[in-house]
Design a protein around this nucleic acid. Structure first.
Length: 574
RNA sequence: GAGCCUGUAGCACAGUGGAUAGGGCAACGGCCUUCUAAGCCGUAGGUCGGGGGUUCGAAUCCCUCCAGGCUCGCCA
């Protein structure tokens, strides 16, 4: 049980309302609009009808009925039908600070996920294409969920479901044989592939026979022709080498790169099973699962020309993942354009009698477009992820030259700040919102941004460095005399935020929404900056110094761990 | 046409039943001889898309209309 949950349970244990359960009271507790009012409030309006008493009177009765000795509370007061509970900061400070300072980065760890495997399908890039800003959301959302699941004791499996199948690879093979060469491919990587791919499309406008050649080439690849397979493997290796550089910079990790090609020989068994369950039928020459009963268009499994489709491979992948990992949940971090696809997919699994269909979850996110419209590789208006990262790093290096010219290892720090700014930019809003990408917004380092959090952490670290104390300096409990150093509004707000970390992580997992964490660490950073401005720490009165330094240390731990979970490095200087 | 999503300050967003709707950017005015000013404080800015309903109480729930986005059988 987290500290916040314990506090709620304690409050509810003090209150007795006829015909109202303790659980109901706990769930009714809300944060008051102003922290000065208290930590928790109980609105009494909903009990009025039941008790045939006015809310104001009920609140007053609750307050007078509480026989607590008030060691835990500063005050319990009834105001306008609310009962406000304000915990004594001296009582909770020792508790929170000691948990954080002793557990350090393992604070808010949990074992709730023990023995539970979570498959997370994210990023899922196409072979022979470079990553652009459209890939940013899925990659960093998936990465954040992966780390948070791990922190909560789950066993996450990161899956990059590669787009490595389809006639486009026939086109690439033909194009490469006509215009490509190994040296250029080795030197230029994926952009050399893009170049010949674009050329193929241009040429095929006037020479339609190229398309027949591409189909034939893809057929040879399917049939396992050694030369074709070798070329394809080369394209794949070049693509992965290049995207892995981006993944390293973003700190995302995959346990499996099994993509479409991997499931090529695993679809027949699925189709046969659906056939034998009488779920399939032939419609216009294609094999479908009719879903009209569920107000959905049919799920297409086999095209009229015998080729399989996206849904077929996803079904095979779902079967394979359940068999291989026996997942507790299988999560797809895929753009909302595919809402219907996943709804159909999960329904087909349910119809096939898979009880685990309910554990399949689509986590959709919004589109990225440019100010001039939708991105299109063919029209050439794409913004490559590598370029965005490079520009961000460049800008943070420039800022450092002005603000902190004496800094050593400038480029190393600039990498952490620049990439962190981009990651935070992608994680800070509710994932369902569309994003119109602009360099101006992505490269903003002021206000609620990644660099702001990093900067706040650097401030805290700087104080701790200047103090020059060892770990046992932060030993707890503090005496009342020392805790008086935290007897101010800024400390109280900061402390109450720090104890919320475990509950925040639970919310992120419940809603598959990393922005809850990013907004939380913004709040922590903001609260620390106020505390820092209003209260001397190093030069505090001697009896105040240790408690304030410990609060600073605890804040640093939360900020650094919060950033790590989001996939953002925390530099020690900037 | 149908289904889903979005609509909150000039801009981009938090807030999904509770007290006076909040932070950021931009604007304006302050704060560096003391712990890193990528910071802090203040001012200004709101018919929470419109209308109706439910409720002691609605940005939040229901209905309806409007605007934008996505999707709707052989792409993924």
């Amino acid at each position: 049980m987290s500290i916040v949950e314990e506090k709620k349970a304690y409050i509810s244990s003090l209150i007795k309302i006829d015909n109202v359960s303790n659980i109901e009271i706990q769930e009714s507790l809300i944060p008051p609009p102003d922290p000065e009012l208290g930590d928790f409030a109980l609105p009494c309006f909903k009990f009025a009808k039941l008790l045939k008493t006015s809310p104001v009177k009920i609140a007053e009765n609750i307050v007078s009925s509480i026989t607590d000795d008030h060691t835990m509370f500063d005050k319990i007061v009834a105001i306008n039908g609310y009962v406000n509970f304000k915990f004594n900061i001296r009582a909770s400070a020792n508790r929170v600070l000691s948990e954080i300072v002793t557990q350090k980065s393992t604070y808010a760890n949990s074992s709730e996920g023990m023995g539970r495997t979570i498959c997370i399908d994210y990023s899922s890039i196409n072979i022979a294409k470079l990553m652009h800003i459209g890939h940013l959301s899925t990659t960093v959302i998936g990465g954040a969920l992966y780390r948070i699941y791990k922190k909560l004791g789950y066993n996450p499996i990161g899956i990059n479901h590669l787009g490595d199948w389809g006639t486009q690879f026939g086109k690439l093979i033909v194009a490469f044989k006509l215009w490509g060469n190994i040296e250029k491919l080795t030197n230029d990587g994926v952009s050399a592939l893009t170049e010949i791919y674009v050329k193929f499309h241009a040429e095929s406008e006037t020479k339609p026979e190229l398309l027949d050649m591409a189909r034939a080439a893809f057929k040879r690849l399917e049939d396992g022709d050694p030369e074709s397979v070798q070329l394809f493997e080369l394209f794949k290796k070049i693509t992965l080498d290049e995207v892995n550089k981006v993944y390293d910079r973003l700190h995302v990790h995959f346990d499996s790169y099994n993509g479409e090609a991997f499931y090529n020989d695993k679809m027949d068994v699925v189709i046969n099973e659906l056939d034998s369950l009488n779920l399939t039928e032939i419609s216009d020459g294609a094999k479908i699962v009719d879903l009209s009963k569920y107000d959905m268009p049919p799920c297409l499994l086999v095209r009229s020309d015998g080729a399989t489709l996206y849904a077929t491979r996803d079904l095979a992948a779902a079967y394979y993942r359940k068999r291989t990992y026996d997942f507790y949940k299988c999560i797809y971090v895929v753009a909302y354009q595919q809402n219907l696809h996943f709804k159909q997919l999960f329904k087909v699994l349910e119809l096939a009698g898979k009880t685990w269909a309910k554990d399949m979850i689509h986590v959709p996110f919004g589109m990225v477009s440019l100010e001039e419209g939708a991105m299109s590789t063919r029209r050439g208006n794409v913004i490559l992820l590598m370029d965005v990262l490079s520009k961000a790093v460049e800008k943070s290096a420039e800022i450092m030259t002005v603000k902190n010219p004496a800094l050593k290892d400038k480029m190393e720090i600039a990498e952490k700040i620049g990439v962190g700014a981009i990651t935070f930019f992608a994680l800070n809003n509710n994932r369902i919102k569309d994003i119109v990408f602009s360099y101006d917004k992505a490269l903003s380092f002021d206000g609620e941004t990644g660099p702001y959090i990093q900067y706040t952490n650097v401030r805290a670290l700087s104080i701790l460095r200047n103090l020059g104390v060892s770990d046992d300096y932060f030993s707890i409990p503090f005496t009342d005399d020392e805790l008086a150093g935290l007897d101010n509004k800024e400390s109280a707000i900061l402390l109450s935020l720090l104890e919320k970390m475990p509950d925040i992580l639970t919310q992120v997992i419940e809603k598959f929404e990393p922005s809850i964490l990013s907004r939380y660490i913004i709040d922590v950073a903001k609260a620390f900056n106020r505390f820092y401005l209003e209260n001397r720490i190093m030069n505090a009165e001697t009896n105040y110094r240790r408690a304030r330094a410990t609060l600073t240390y605890a804040t640093h731990i939360i900020l650094e761990e919060g950033l790590r979970l989001l996939g953002i490095d925390a530099p020690t200087e900037m």
